[in-house]
Amino acid sequence: MSRELTISLSPHEKGNLSVEKIMWSVVIALIPALTASVYFYGIHALRVVVLGMLFCIALEYLIQKFVLKTKVTAFDGSAAVTGLLLAFNVPSSIPWWQLLIGSAAAIGVAKMAFGGLGKNPFNPALVGRAFMLASFPVQMNTWPAPLRKIWESGADALTSATPLGILKEGVRDGTPIADLADKMPSYFDMFIGNMGGCIGEVSAFAILAGGIYLLSRKIISFHIPLFYLLSLAGFTGLFWLFNPVKYADPLFHILAGGAMLGAWFMATDMVTCPMSIKGQVIFAISGGILCGAIRLFGSYPEGCSYSILVMNAFVPLIDKYFKPKRFGKEVDNGK
């Protein structure tokens, strides 16, 4: 009997998936969206993203090291993803100290206060964003125009409203949708991201590319993004069919605002979405409807982040009642 023998339980074989791999894959998947926003908004977008990541990693490190005094796992990539997503959810003109406060809310309140990675009930990046939106409404609703528009106009700086903002204001004033069209970017511009908005959410195309990367690596499943966007489109489409003068069409709703970013990267956050496929579908469909409802009837122009936060709260309940299909239960062998 030699001392170095180890006793442990099967399995003795281990797959090569790890938390780090998952998290850094998400970071890689967000690079196209980052590239697009740097292209449209310039170096400011990069500044905000780098700061966001730095703040989140540093805060997680400090909290783990000095407050909780636990093992430091700040570099496993999860803080980087939170920082990245938080930065993606703010305008590129945000002052650094507001971003720091947002990061503190995201990491400190939403994540570490609950016990760190895996224990947070709400998506930390969205909590950070909600906190900033409530605290700094002016800065959070000032959208720098894409660089090209600024060059074209010859001004030093220019702000432009988001398509959803234009829509909300227009509808409030009673302007028919058709008349708003000249203020709006074209669908193609919206698809590639040539419009005002938060850093990460502008380019549907880049987000789609990142999402497909995640799908191909099997980090996420297609259920949440697909059903979220479908239910958003279905809900808004219903009203559009009923009254196209007052309501915008579903394609607009999918491309505008944070719906794409939310569906692909926020709602699919593993920690805060349901576990079973059935649960995920319920989660996504309810989230999509909520988002549509906030956009059409709420006072905020954008409802995506709130819809996901609200649905996060339902996840334990969904997990309790929507179980995966058990093998050998409710069997029908054709008898």
Binding site: G116, L117, G118, M270, V271, T272, M275, S276, P324
Partner: peptide, 18 residues
């Protein structure tokens, strides 16, 4: 490490357990 609720265990369980 902490469970990150990735649901991979559910997707690989041949008996459909959690």
């Amino acid at each position: 490490k902490n469970c990150i609720r990735c649901a991979k265990c559910i997707s690989v369980c041949p008996m459909g357990l959690e």
